[in-house]
Design a protein around this nucleic acid. Structure first.
Lengths: 237, 237
DNA sequence: CGACTGCTTGACCTAGATCAAACGGCGTGG
DNA sequence: CCACGCCGTTTGATCTAGGTCAAGCAGTCG
């Protein structure tokens, strides 16, 4: 079994071998032959912060950076629907019912495949379909978490929940008791659009958390959490 | 082609033939052999309004009635995450990250299969996996629609959007210009828990819509919409 | 008939929005 | 090098949409 895996591993395309997403949700479903086929059709992109990602049917591994998904109401009010942190992947079969815009929050590295290749592989690789389903359900769970937050949490619970979510994504191997620090990849305006608040309220809640000793703020964007556990008490669920 | 389908049709299990879900999202993915296997393992239930549906791993076609999905915060605040209207189907592979409770809003008829059977069939029927994926993505789209509503819409926009959603589900073949009427399967408390409001605010917005002439209310629960289009103007997106 | 449950309406209150001012870091140009 | 403008942010003062509290109404059930 180990031997067989090694043999396959030897056939993995050179550009895939050092790839951060090689063992990720999408690519680890493929055998060496499929990887080779994908590698031929794939291309890497560097994308600058602020760039909007076009919604052609492509699928992409997000190798580095953070992407936001947004929806706008007719008069310009904006809601952020979710984030993708590396290593995640972007793209979906079937069109969404309403349009969703994807935009890079930081500089972003993508490895993209045309949708047609993936769509075909779904039929020959049941495991791929399973991965996509699992991924969609995970995004559904996230969306529902935020529904509960948007509908029923107070401003300070929303901000605490948000910091917790970012911390968990920036360092998935977190220890709940130890402290953690990171640079927020979002402006206060983005945070407000995600939490259904205004920038002023977000700013006030940051200040309050700081004076509580729950967080430390350096340079507006760099945040240190005393501990994950400390914030969990403040997030209401 | 038509002949072949007729031949298959002849083999369809007797209990499936008159079933409202026979051509539905789930069952229309199966051939006659699979339907026979499923029919053997399936069972029909009548469930009374108010009953909580246990979250064992079963999958069910919802043949009649309406089901709500809810999440509770630690202090009892409740958010409704979504609804299932007949003919929809319930159940999912992989556990949700956080617990979600399903409860019948009206009397409900289910046709249920053990999860093990479905999980096995996913591997032998790529079409089934595709259906499940499509269904999950559709629920994701819905959840995101409501994220935008919860985060950024006013109370009256939320109520208008809600009525629109119910109307579309109660009569999917709606004509946007013609009037439509139906019985709300929810109490004001449920509506409030869905929209992130209080029952008083929901009630006030109903009254306002009534005095605007956008809706007519008989017996608290029976609602008539002047037209779908009239409400669409009020829902903000 | 009385008790209960769901709904409506009114009076008042507050969390968070809005409006306004000022701060600080950063890039540009003199 | 400093002066200036810009942008994101903070903080304060005030306002308001929607929450809270309270009373009363209409079905419904026992």
């Amino acid at each position: 079994m180990a031997a067989r895996q090694d043999a396959q591993e030897a056939d993995v395309p050179a550009i895939c071998k050092p790839c951060e997403a090689r063992q990720g949700e999408l690519c680890s479903a493929f055998n060496a032959r499929q990887l080779a086929e994908l590698a031929k059709a794939s291309s890497r992109h560097e994308i600058l912060a602020g760039t909007e990602l076009s919604d052609d049917g492509t699928y992409s591994n997000l190798l580095s950076g953070v992407v936001k998904l947004t929806r706008n109401l007719s008069d310009g009010r904006q809601q952020i629907l979710g984030f993708h942190f590396a290593p995640d992947f972007l793209g979906r079969p079937f069109k969404a019912k309403k349009s969703i815009k994807a935009q890079a929050l930081t500089n972003v590295t993508l490895c993209s495949f045309p949708g047609t290749v993936i769509d075909r592989m779904i039929n020959e690789t049941p495991e791929l379909g399973r991965r996509l389903l699992k991924h969609a359900l995970s995004e559904l769970d996230d969306a529902r978490d935020w529904m509960a937050a948007l509908g029923r949490k107070t401003a300070s619970e929303k901000v605490a929940s948000f910091l917790l979510m970012v911390a968990r994504n920036m360092d998935p191997a977190h220890h709940p008791q130890s402290s953690i620090s990171f640079d927020l990849p979002l402006t206060r305006a983005d945070i407000a659009d995600f939490l259904g608040l205004t920038i002023e309220t977000v700013s006030r809640e940051f200040s309050r958390l700081r004076s509580n000793g729950a967080i430390r703020i350096a340079n507006k964007r760099h945040i240190s959490l005393a501990s994950i556990a400390r914030l969990e008490e403040r997030c209401g669920d």
